[in-house]
């Protein structure tokens, strides 16, 4: 599903350097990435999503070499094939819950907002337990409800890969476990692959595989 080969990445004006000689994740695998702050976990997610491009090496997702795609194709690939779940939810406060879930469909031509998509959004919301809150402004939601909305948004385009960047970081312990349950259920139901960055070691046992990111750290560019 994800295949990284000879990756060498340096921020244009930064001192940080990330080198990943070889990294693979299989289809439908649920992988947790751990490591200290600044070790490059988020950078890795950005490289896999095609938000940033490596200087050397290749990143393949679902048999597409993302790192070699043109910018607009990378964006189209990302919005259709990759679902993002952020630590701060990244919901838009001027939209209600339903519009937040449908938001990716309104910002790209690669996705078409049809009646069936709306129905699927309702089903997803039902699954996540927020069906009765679809018309509520997100400002009125609890933290847990916000993250469920963000997960619905990530899953709606039926992506083959879910990237979760500390998705449970802002949640209380009860919500953490519940949200992770829901995320796993949905990932299983959609037969998607999950790559989650987390600092929460209590949750690691629930993943198929845990990657300690310290091992990829390439050091500091002098």
């Amino acid at each position: 599903m994800i295949k990284i080969t000879d990756l060498d990445f340096v921020y244009p004006h930064g001192e940080f350097r990330l080198m990943v000689p070889d990294f693979n994740i299989g289809r439908s695998e649920k992988v947790a990435v751990i490591g200290p702050s600044g070790s490059g976990k988020t950078t890795l997610l950005n490289l896999i999503a095609g938000i940033t491009v490596p200087k050397h090496g290749t990143v393949e997702v679902d048999e597409v070499t993302v790192s070699r795609l043109e910018d607009r194709h990378r964006r189209a690939f990302r919005i259709t094939r990759i679902g993002f779940v952020f630590q701060d939810f990244a919901l838009l406060d001027y939209l209600d819950v339903l519009d937040n879930i449908l938001h990716p469909y309104r910002i790209t031509r690669a996705l078409e907002l049809s009646r069936s998509v709306r129905q699927r959004a309702s089903v997803l919301a039902e699954t996540m337990g927020i069906a009765d809150k679809l018309k509520r402004p997100v400002g009125e939601l609890s933290q847990g409800e916000k993250q469920r909305t963000a997960i619905c948004r990530a899953l709606l385009p039926d992506p083959s890969l879910i990237l979760a960047d500390e998705a449970t970081g802002n949640l209380d312990p009860d919500n953490k476990s519940r949200i992770l349950d829901l995320l796993f259920e949905c990932v299983d139901a959609h037969r998607a692959t999950l790559l989650a960055v987390t600092h929460d070691h209590e949750l690691l046992a629930r993943f198929d595989r845990v990657v300690d990111f310290q091992g990829f750290r390439g050091g500091v560019v002098e």
Binding site: A49, I51, R75, R78, I79, F84, F86, A90, P104, I107
Partner: peptide, 20 residues
């Protein structure tokens, strides 16, 4: 800015921001 960064991360094209 945060909203713009989010929708860029989600995968919207650069022109979308101009459209908005």
């Amino acid at each position: 800015q945060r909203e713009i960064e989010t929708i860029f991360k989600l995968g919207c094209q650069r022109a979308t921001i101009a459209h908005l």
